[in-house]
């Protein structure tokens, strides 16, 4: 069996979790989160098995790299959920994990031939730091989207739920329906932790942790690159695009610390930064892998 076929197990389980969330009538969230944790354990086992296959050198195929990235993202989401008691965050953030898993499933799985022997610890640090930074920014992106939607609701004063009717239909009219969208949609409205201040705080936390990780990752990356090509002067597109991404987050962090930028504008910048990350990843892995030194 091809190793990447195992990737499909967490994908299916994640989809199953959402199905449970929609269909189950009593305590659907508890079942959902149980399935998510269970899937995460499965995902962890696959990651360890995958990395073990390459003796944890991190010189791994792109598909495993993306799978590893999705695992880090899921880990961060779960940690944030536990830390901030913002339980509904998993509902919103898991789709991006699923997307990463799908990408990993369809990504090429050919082995990478390391062009140069580099210090493996630095390479591991480079990859882990960059992926952690990216994952934190991915979470920041999700949080920013929720923030913008929530803020929009508050500004337009539409669809604001202030009474938690417990998702129960006392009249029993819609009990029999499989997809009671109104009932199920409540999960996306009634997250108690979803106040703007918390979303903004979490976003800031992502930035505070993600930025140093990204910076260190890029610095190590440049060092590795110079070691690889023997010259720091040869600037590659990946470095330019990384620098732009880094600059966006640097501006965001500076504005936050110095001028107290927060709320909508901070969320917008977070979204812009994440789009740049997607572009970076796209550039480095698919479009011009040679620029990253992967070929």
């Amino acid at each position: 069996m091809i190793f990447k076929n195992y990737y499909f197990i967490p994908i299916l389980l994640f989809f199953l979790s959402y199905a449970v969330l929609y269909i189950k009538k009593n305590n659907p969230y508890n079942s959902f989160i149980f399935l998510i944790y269970f899937t995460f354990v499965i995902q962890s086992v696959i990651v360890i098995a995958g990395l073990d296959k390459y003796h944890f050198t991190m010189i791994i195929p792109i598909d495993l790299m993306i799978f590893f990235n999705s695992w880090i993202l899921m880990l961060i989401v779960i940690l944030f959920e536990l830390l901030y008691k913002a339980k509904y965050i998993v509902i919103y953030a898991t789709p991006i994990v699923i997307a990463a898993l799908l990408v990993s499933y369809f990504a090429p799985s050919m082995d990478i031939n390391a062009i140069l022997k580099v210090d493996s610890w630095l390479l591991i640090a480079h990859i882990v730091l960059i992926l952690t930074g990216d994952s934190l920014f991915a979470l920041a992106f999700i949080l920013s989207l929720i923030y913008i939607l929530q803020e929009r609701k508050l500004k337009l004063k539409k669809n604001l739920k202030i009474i938690n009717s417990g998702n129960k239909n006392s009249s029993g009219k819609n009990e029999g329906r499989l997809f009671n969208f109104r009932r199920n949609f409540n999960y996306f409205n009634l997250g108690k932790g979803y106040n703007l201040e918390l979303l903004d705080n979490m976003n800031y936390q992502c930035l505070k942790l993600g930025f140093p990780a990204l910076t260190a990752g890029i610095v190590i990356g440049i060092y590795l690159s110079s070691a690889l090509f023997k010259s720091v002067a040869s600037v590659k597109p990946i470095e330019i695009i990384s620098l732009i991404t880094w600059l966006i987050y640097a501006i965001l962090l500076h504005e936050r610390v110095a001028k107290g930028l927060r709320g909508n504008k901070a969320a917008m910048l977070s979204i812009a930064g994440f789009i740049m990350i997607i572009l970076t990843v796209g550039f480095s892995l698919y479009l011009f892998p040679e620029f990253h030194g992967l070929k």
Binding site: I162, K192, Y194, E197
Partner: peptide, 18 residues
């Protein structure tokens, strides 16, 4: 009764964490 004050507090909870 779901009063204006109740609604105001609930709305505040949508903006502020604590």
């Amino acid at each position: 009764p779901v009063s204006i004050s109740y609604a105001a507090v609930e709305l505040a909870k949508k903006i502020f964490n604590d």
